[in-house]
């Protein structure tokens, strides 16, 4: 049998594989275009002043400092609400939950929660936190809304991390007369926490870039001061970008500021991602010794 490079079968394959390479190429191209556009046009405006001062002259000049601070605050709040509850739920599912209808209901709820549109979380935040709990539009209401939105991600990431701890650690300690909680606390959690943290940080990076849930629960168009308490409104990077690119009265004039904001937002999100990767690496190294 002779190998024929010109058979139809072979040509089909060559063509087909090139098509697949083309698809991958398009995906990479999209990423390059996105980054190139934002970096090339946003880099020029980034300065110490841009990062550390508030907007001036009807937001046509000045920096984005309050938006950076606001995003930082709301992300910290999100963490406080989402991480402990998410880890607790993951511990229940992976360590305690029996194989029952109720457990399946819990798992189904998690998957559905992660599918609920972010704007619907915004509506929920308005109905529950702003109105029913009477918090008003403020940092706390936004943090709670984002906390709930990130909950399914935190749970999934934490459970993944718990699953990666070998069964023998649990069996070993139980066989020594440890209670289940002792076994989890001393012999499961210490090894799962690195993975939990990394997964969680990845989720928070996504939360930091979200706009729809904070639109009506606490984010402000413009504030001349920084938020001082949980009941203050705040400026946020994603919302600021939205305003600067669609709602501002002199859109073309402030376009550079919009690009700068987009750049800062993207860099922030990727710093968070990067820190997750570094953290994972560091903690792994520590626990191996």
């Amino acid at each position: 049998m002779k190998y024929s490079p010109f058979s139809i079968k072979h040509l089909q394959q060559t063509f087909g594989f090139h098509f697949l390479r083309f698809c991958m190429g398009v995906v990479i191209l999209i990423l390059i275009v996105v980054f190139h556009d934002i970096f090339s046009k946003g880099f020029g405006i980034i300065s110490w002043e841009f990062l550390t001062t508030a907007p001036r002259k009807g937001m046509t000049e000045g920096g984005i400092y309050p938006a950076i601070v606001g995003t930082f605050y709301v992300t910290v709040l999100t963490t406080i609400f989402s991480v402990p509850l998410g880890m607790g739920c993951a511990i229940y599912l992976n360590e305690y939950a029996p194989d029952s209808k109720l457990t399946r209901l819990i798992r189904m709820s998690i998957r559905n929660l992660s599918g609920v549109p972010s704007i619907v979380y915004g509506l929920f935040g308005v109905a529950l936190f702003v109105e029913l709990f009477n918090l008003g539009t403020c940092l706390l209401a936004s943090g709670l809304t984002l906390g709930l939105m990130t909950l399914p991600w935190t749970i999934t990431a934490s459970e993944e991390a718990l699953k990666s701890v070998p069964r023998s650690y649990r069996e070993g300690s139980l066989a020594l007369g440890a209670t289940q909680w002792q076994s989890i606390r001393t012999n499961v959690l210490p090894y799962a926490v690195p993975g939990m943290l990394t997964g969680t940080i990845l989720g928070l990076a996504r939360a930091a870039g979200e706009t729809a849930p904070i639109l009506f629960t606490g984010a402000a168009f413009y504030l001349p001061f920084l938020p001082e308490s949980l009941s203050d409104q705040f400026m946020a990077l994603p919302y600021h970008l939205y305003i600067m690119s669609t709602q501002h009265h002199a859109i073309m004039q402030v376009r550079p500021i919009a690009y700068g904001t987009a750049l800062v937002l993207i860099v922030l999100v990727f710093l968070l991602n990067l820190s997750a990767v570094v953290l994972r690496y560091q903690l792994r190294k520590r626990y191996r010794e």
Partner: peptide, 15 residues
């Protein structure tokens, strides 16, 4: 389990 100890098939020391 305190009264009845166990040693497993594969050595499973804790890290």
């Amino acid at each position: 389990r305190k009264k009845v100890g166990m040693v497993f098939q594969k050595p499973n020391p804790f890290p």
